[in-house]
């Protein structure tokens, strides 16, 4: 579905920002890419929609080598939601912002109308439909940028830092929405610093450091490895931190598991 094979990329000759990336993502997977500022996360995902092309190795998306197809062709299949919504939003109203891509992709007017309304409702933005995007709060803008991509139904959705400025309810709603899209068969890739969000909602995660993938696996394994996280500028999820403090082995990211272990400690069973 998405395949990276030996991918290298540099903005400045000789200084590789991503190095020897080998990665396989199946259709319908949902995964998070974690790593410190400057680890190469954003550079990596820009290879999936063809905005960047590998200098060594190759990237295949839905069977297409990204070097051989246009960004326009990939864009319809790969929706990328940028980190900073100000870089993406430009329309006069919230509604027009969502309609823009739909018009460009040539959807019929009735369809444009129904899709726009559905997505604005789904993301809790319908009451703002006539407002200028620039009058929205930071968190609301992020949701609008997401709506403007989700509306045209790409089969792969990439979100760069979707949870910044979002409160807990919105994060939970976002997770639910992503789960729904995922169940419809979409592949979802999230670039994030938000360890708690990943621990709560995302089953697979990749850790990047200095342009390389240093770990790739199920979140309930990767996120319980304190040393690995700390070595890569990440912090432990709070539940894992509690496990470490209480020497609970193996640590867990699951609330119920930690709760029962702590209860056992309190009863003197451990």
């Amino acid at each position: 579905m998405i395949e990276f094979k030996g991918v290298y990329f540099s903005y400045v000759p000789g200084e590789y920002v991503i190095k020897n990336i080998n990665l396989f993502i199946n259709r319908g997977e949902i995964l998070a890419i974690l790593g410190g500022n400057g680890a190469g996360k954003t550079t990596l995902v820009k290879h999936i929609n063809g905005l960047l092309k590998p200098q060594l190795g190759y990237v295949k998306v839905l069977g297409m080598n990204t070097k051989e197809v246009s960004v326009a062709k990939l864009a319809k299949q790969v929706g990328l939601v940028f980190q900073n919504p100000d870089h993406q939003l430009f329309a006069e109203t919230v509604e027009k912002e969502v309609m823009f891509a739909l018009i460009n992709f040539g959807f019929p007017p009735e369809e444009i109308k129904s899709r726009t309304e559905k997505i604005l409702r789904g993301l809790d933005l319908i009451e703002y439909k006539d407002r200028s995007p620039f009058t929205l709060s930071g968190g609301e803008k992020k949701r609008l940028a997401l709506a403007a991509v989700l509306c045209y139904d790409p089969s792969i959705i990439i979100l760069d830092e979707p949870t910044t400025g979002q409160d807990y309810n919105q994060k939970r709603n976002l997770a639910k929405l992503l789960k729904r899209f995922n169940e419809e068969g979409k592949t979802i890739i999230i670039v994030t610093h938000d360890i708690e969000f990943v621990a709560d909602f995302i089953p697979r995660c990749i850790i990047m450091s200095n342009g390389e993938i240093v770990a790739d696996g199920p979140s309930d394994d990767i996120l319980t490895r304190g040393e690995l996280l700390m070595a890569n500028k990440l912090l432990m999820p709070q539940l894992v931190e509690i496990c470490y403090e209480l020497s609970i082995n193996p640590p867990s990211i699951k609330f119920d598991v930690v709760l029962s272990k702590v209860r056992a400690i309190m009863k003197g069973e451990i």
Binding site: G36, E161, L234
Partner: peptide
């Protein structure tokens, strides 16, 4: 105002 929103966990801390 959310000074660490765009920072990685280490830098935030």
């Amino acid at each position: 105002d959310e000074p660490t929103a765009n920072l990685d966990p280490f830098s935030s801390k």
